[in-house]
Simulated scan of single mutants.
Amino acid sequence: MLFAGLLVAVGAVAFRLVVIRQFPGFGPASGGALVDPARPAARIGRLASLAVVLGTIGRLVAEMGVFRDPFEPFWAEIRLLVAGTSWGRAWLAQITAAALSVIAFTLAARPGRAAEPGWMLAAAGVVLLAYTPALSGHAVGAEHYVTAAITADVLHVAAGGAWLGTLAVMAGVLHLGRRSGAEISRAHIVDWITAFSPLALGSAAVIGATGLFAAWLHLGAFSALWAEPYGRRLSLKLLFVLGVVGCGAYNWKRSRGRVLASGDPARLPPTVVLELAVAVGLLLITAVLTTTTPPLHE
C-alpha cells in the first residue's frame, strides 16, 4: 500500500507537469462544461497519498509488533521508537510528507487557477515522499557510499513513479473523464501517449542504472543472486521488471496504432492493463525485498 500509493502520487504530479502541460485533453462534457483532466488527476493523487498514510501507519504497527516490550507502557514505547530512533525520525518524515500531500492534492482538485498553489505544494510533497524510503531502508544502512546509495534510491523511487505511477494515473483519468461525460477522442489518447513515452523511456533508464548500482552495493557477489535469500528475491524482482519493460516496449511501439484502430469509445489498449498488473506484482516483491537483509549488511 505504501509503495503503490507513493508511486501513484508521484505519477499524479508527473502527469500534471508533463502530459497535461503538452496536451490538455478533454473536450466539453455532455452538459457543455469544459472538463479539466488535472482535477481527476488530483483526486487520484489524494487517494494515493491517503494510501501512503495508511501504509505508513501499518509500518509503525508492524515495527511495534517486533520490538514491543510487554512490561513497558504502550505509549511510552511508541514515543521511544518514534522520537528516539533513526527509524522513527524517518517514519515521522514519511507520515508528515504523506499528510502534506493529502492536503496539497485536495487543494489541487479545485477548479481553475485556484488549483495552482495546490499543485506546487503537491510537487514538494511527493519529492519529500520519494526521499523517505531511503532513510529507513537498505540505502541508509549501506556499508559504503551511503550518500550515493540514498541518492540512487530516491531517483529509483521517483523514476518508478514517473513511469508506472503516471501510467496508472493516465488510465484512471481517462476512466473518470469518461464517467463524467467528457469527450475523449482517439486523438486525445494518442497525444497523451506521445507525451508520456519519452518520460517512460527516461524513467526506465534511470531505474535500470540505479537498480544495478544498488545490486552491486548490497549483494557483494554475483553468486548471491541464487545463493542468498535476498539475491533470490532480487532475481524474482528482476524477472518482473523484465515483464514490465516488455509490456512497456510493446505499448511504446504499438499503443498508438491500437488506439486509432479501437472501437467506440476509444480507450487504452489492454496491454496497458497487463503492464500495470505486472507492476503490482513487482511492488509486492519489492515490499518483501525491503524486509530482507542484504548479504553485505549481515
Score class of each variant (00 low, 15 high):
213 F>E: 10
222 F>C: 00
238 L>F: 10
166 T>V: 02
217 L>P: 02
147 T>L: 15
238 L>E: 06
177 G>L: 09
140 V>H: 07
136 S>P: 00
223 S>E: 14
129 L>Y: 04
139 A>P: 00
198 P>Q: 02
187 A>E: 15
175 H>V: 13
224 A>C: 05
249 A>H: 08
149 A>Y: 11
167 L>E: 02
141 G>E: 10
197 S>T: 15
207 I>G: 01
199 L>S: 06
114 A>E: 13
131 Y>L: 15
231 G>D: 02
130 A>D: 02
116 E>V: 15
226 W>S: 12
160 G>W: 06
160 G>L: 10
215 A>V: 03
196 F>T: 05
238 L>W: 09
182 A>E: 01
213 F>Y: 15
127 V>H: 02
241 V>Y: 12
230 Y>I: 00
206 V>R: 03
157 V>Y: 09
234 L>E: 02
169 V>W: 09
248 G>Y: 00
112 G>C: 08
213 F>H: 11
130 A>K: 11
165 G>F: 03
120 M>G: 11
148 A>G: 15
154 V>S: 01
243 G>Q: 06
177 G>P: 07
216 W>V: 09
164 L>A: 14
117 P>K: 09
224 A>Q: 12
211 G>N: 10
146 V>A: 13
185 S>I: 04
243 G>P: 05
118 G>L: 00
154 V>A: 11
112 G>I: 06
238 L>R: 08
228 E>D: 15
156 H>L: 09
207 I>R: 05
201 L>P: 03
219 L>F: 11
155 L>G: 00
157 V>P: 06
163 W>R: 08
206 V>H: 03
242 L>P: 00
161 G>I: 05
236 L>S: 11
128 L>Q: 04
151 T>N: 14
163 W>C: 04
233 R>Q: 12
135 L>Y: 07
209 A>C: 12
153 D>W: 02
165 G>I: 03
249 A>L: 15
162 A>V: 08
